[in-house]
Amino acid sequence: MLSWTIWSVGILLEALILFRGFQGKFVSRYPFFYAYSGCVLFVSVLTYFVYAQDSTSSGMWYWGAQLVSLISGYGILLEIFNHVLSPYPGAEKFARVTGFIVFGVIFCFALAYPLMRSQWSPAGTMVELERNLRTVQAIFICAVSCVISYYGIAIGKNMKGMIAGYGLYVATSLVILAVRSYAGVRFDEVWKVVQPLSYDISLIVWSVTLWSYQPNPVAERSIQLEADYETCVARTRSLMGGMRSSLGKVARP
């Protein structure tokens, strides 16, 4: 009963977000986000009716829905990247290289990990697949958040809500799936409630933060610095060198 309520509330919230998006014409501004919402709503409604008809065959549908949600979820990451970082080419390049490095590390780990494992259970494969893909998303969101904070990039309410909502869902899913993978089927009852509940919380966050269009503040570049990055770096390094040596000498007895 509780699962049904959470599921139903989720569908209603998804519909509300999409309705508001079309009404306020935000769909054209955040196409990847609304494509994700549309996909998830479609799959949720379909799975809901399949489950109502025949609850025994719902397992396969559930994993199908999760896979669609997972893949389309990368659209949100693309939306965040486009809206938050594209006005800052330097920060965008930094985030892109970080993303490639993180992806490379995870890819190498994914190749090496099956060789290191002593046993392999097909039953746990879907849970592990989702957990691993959520890990990639989690690390990517972490990296983007760090770049945003490090470069002091101001973000609007819409983007803040998008990052917070999706990040919350990904983090909760990751923790729940990791515990489920470790504890086994006895954790299913908790998993089936907590993961959809965290998604409902994310939907509430999105409903509030995407109710009206609030874009990112545009950074003014009224004063042009030297066009050369090397000059900028050399200048900063030189300043730091002077300060470091003075501090070091002060500390020396």
């Binding site: 990040g167 983090a171 909760t172």
Partner: peptide, 21 residues
């Protein structure tokens, strides 16, 4: 160790979202 690793990534994400917001 695997569980701790994933929980660590989850906690890292929670904290980065908290600080970002």
């Amino acid at each position: 160790i695997q569980l701790i690793l994933f929980l660590f990534v989850g906690a890292l994400l929670f904290s980065s979202i908290f600080f970002l917001s």
